[in-house]
Amino acid sequence: MNDWLLALIELILFVALAPLFSAWVKRVKCWLQNRRAPALLQPYRDLRRLFAKQVLLSHNASPVFRATPYIIAGATLLAAAVVPFISVNLPTAAIADVIVLAGFFALARFFLALAGMDVGTAFGGMGSSREMTISALAEPAMLMAVFTLAMVAHSTNLSTVIDQLLAQGLVLRPSLLFALLSLVLVGIAETGRIPIDNPATHLELTMIHEAMILEYSGRHLALIEWAAQLKLLIYGVLIVNIFFPWGIATSGSPGALAIASGVVFVKLLVLGVLLAVGETVLAKMRLFRVPAFLVLALTLALIGLLSHIILEVG
């Protein structure tokens, strides 16, 4: 029972911290670009304002359009519930393994793309078309990275994977190095960050995610924005906790949990800085450069897989 309580607390932490992580990335980016950064609490204020605002629906909007924000939020919440955040002993992790996690994201994406096509503008269709194309290309790379991980840890259950990697200690594994790089690229593509998509602009020719949600307002928009922030945090936590699992709590004692929270916090701060640096250094790609980017991710994942088979097992 304690475990389930802990799982609930972790989920609440996840939900609560998601906007903060986005704000942190934005802040570091502003520093790097010599701009004045908004307050760290700004995303929370935005969300509160949006939740309070009236919803304006298009005449053409169907029930699918209205249900989509809730389905996206629900699926993303479920995804957050199965990712070990501060403790490895997560009972909810057994509900869904990594592949189901990808399935949750796919479900959210499916409905988001449908909503984009619902109101009958060219923008929405454009965003949906691009989003589905990019995610289709990202999927094999992601799966192959997951396969590599699963072959190293003999499991796809996230808790078990982290447990296994912790037990092996510090091992320099070429397979995990490449799987990490590949997952980073996939994560960037899936969360719509630079150089794939720019969450900060609404320029018609380049936008993907924003094009789909153009017609949303009020609490619907708030839910979608917040789910996007949550998704970014989930990818961040996955990357830091799987590839750098040291510090995560292996027991339920309050001391271990406190340390783990601190360590995860610091790891995420560092990851945020790296992401911001990457986004500052790189420029957004043309749409038809994106396949090359994802082929790179696929190649990295493939080399990770092959190096596991050839070099590590022999």
Binding site: V171, L172, R173, P174, S175, I303, G304, L311
Partner: peptide, 19 residues
């Protein structure tokens, strides 16, 4: 372990050359 990792990286540079 580092030698093996470097071997994988050499392989990667070969792929990068191809691409």
């Amino acid at each position: 372990q580092a030698i093996l990792t470097l071997a994988a990286m050499v392989l990667f540079t070969s792929f990068a050359l191809l691409a």
